[in-house]
Design a protein around this nucleic acid. Structure first.
Lengths: 245, 245
DNA sequence: CGTTTACTTGAATGCTCTCAACCAGCGTGG
DNA sequence: CCACGCTGGTTGAGAGCATTCAAGTAAACG
């Protein structure tokens, strides 16, 4: 299995990644390293000279506000080009840390520049991947702004399931979610206590279970309904609304 | 004055737009039209074949949720490439409507495709502009998730001032903001009543005035402090934190 | 002018937060 | 091997922010 497989899997959902492009991507990787959990891989305000491709694990982008509270603005899974935007934005407006032990690949901006100079189609694919990130952001805003606490939780479960399924990291209706309730609360912009009660409500209703790191979806249809989940924005183009039963 | 001037002004903040590129952009415009206020220019779920460049006025991107509530996820000003992302995303995950009468230019996706095939530098500029949109989204999430109502208002005033100043649409510390409180409330994900009271608090404290459509910033420093505004994410690279006095 | 739209105000309800314990699992060291 | 301490999860209760409902005011429009 190739290193760029998860990324290619993601990009391929809608567009064709040619063997040549796959090779170019592979060669763009300068180095690979394993990072333990809870470690910043990009710090707020820095000017990175390379972008990070997440090969395994979960990372999150976050900002900290004056009163010390943290807001997580995105969660990334295998195959995500975590800070591709850093290639063109000169300064990082937020930090990125590992929520779990991760394997990450570094792609120097210089190589990305070369790709944009020579390979228009591949460039559009990379651009697309940042556009999908933006679409996820928009959905995140809608959730934080207008959905109830329970709906937000249901939506995220659906979204993560869909994204993980797209890179082959689901097992039937189960997937690994090794993150804490505090991290979830910071994602939704709510308190741990309230998140905990929302989780209990959904679990109690038999919509999903979450033991240890393992999430199992028990009632996909109801989750979709409660979370008002419509996978359009993920641009996956997989027949997703109906997961394998 | 050229049609693409506001866009060029925006792109130029960080990067150089060559005369040639400016000409290419100008030629990419297929047609220009004026649209009255409160009209959808892109509907949710559609598959546009052209993107919209906003020449004058304000537009907003929004989603509607099940209980009928609306969440505005972005506000656009002159010079913004309102739905450039529609070029690569196959289906619009949200709608766009005019908050005021607007003048808009249409750029067929076909021409954008040609640009990406032939002009790498210009492509990166366009890509950058979508990345800045995403950065604004992230800030929006932080605001909706973790800032107080008053802080969110203060932040938006600062952001709009900064963005309008970048395209020369401010007059000293004043600018036109012809939008309703309902629209603002939908932007912040809060009720009109509560927004109204937050506005009054800030006005009462003498931080800014808002009469008719005219906003005047009275105490920039305090606004920045309360709204925790740091313009880094806008990638403007103008000496902004200190507006002309 | 009369009507509509936007803004403002008051009061009651309720969601969400904070504070403060308490419990459970797990790794470490005695 | 078991006690301890740490982290993460759970629970209860009171406070407070934000919503809804409802009504009233002001400004814009034909």
């Amino acid at each position: 299995m190739d290193l760029v497989d998860p990324l290619v899997a993601r990009l391929s959902q809608k567009n064709v990644v040619t063997p040549e492009e796959r090779e170019i991507l592979g060669k763009a990787i300068a180095r690979i390293r394993d990072v333990p959990a809870d470690q910043d891989i990009v710090t707020e305000g820095s000017r990175p000279t390379e972008s990070t491709l997440l090969l395994r694990g979960f990372t999150a982008r976050y900002s900290t506000v004056a009163n010390g509270k943290r807001q997580i603005v995105a969660i990334h899974v295998s195959g995500d080009f975590v800070d591709l935007h850093g290639f063109l934005l000169n300064r990082m407006d937020h930090g990125i840390y590992t929520m779990t032990p991760c394997r990450i690949a570094s792609v120097p901006h210089q190589r990305l520049l070369e790709i944009t100079e020579k390979f228009p189609h591949l460039t559009r694919l990379l651009w697309l991947s940042t556009l999908i990130d933006a679409a996820i952001h928009r959905q995140w805003i809608v959730g934080v702004g207008r959905l109830s606490a329970v709906a937000r939780v249901a939506h995220l479960i659906c979204e993560l399931y869909a994204r993980l399924a797209a890179v082959g990291e689901t097992d039937g209706l189960r997937f690994q979610l090794p993150i804490t309730q505090e991290e979830l609360a910071d994602s939704f912009g709510m308190s741990i206590v309230h998140l905990n009660r929302s989780l209990q409500e959904l679990r109690g209703a038999g919509l999903f279970s979450w033991q240890r790191d393992q999430v199992e979806i028990l009632d996909w249809d109801r989750l979709v309904e409660i979370g008002e989940f419509d996978p359009t924005y993920l641009n996956l183009d997989v027949t997703l609304p109906r997961p394998p039963l």
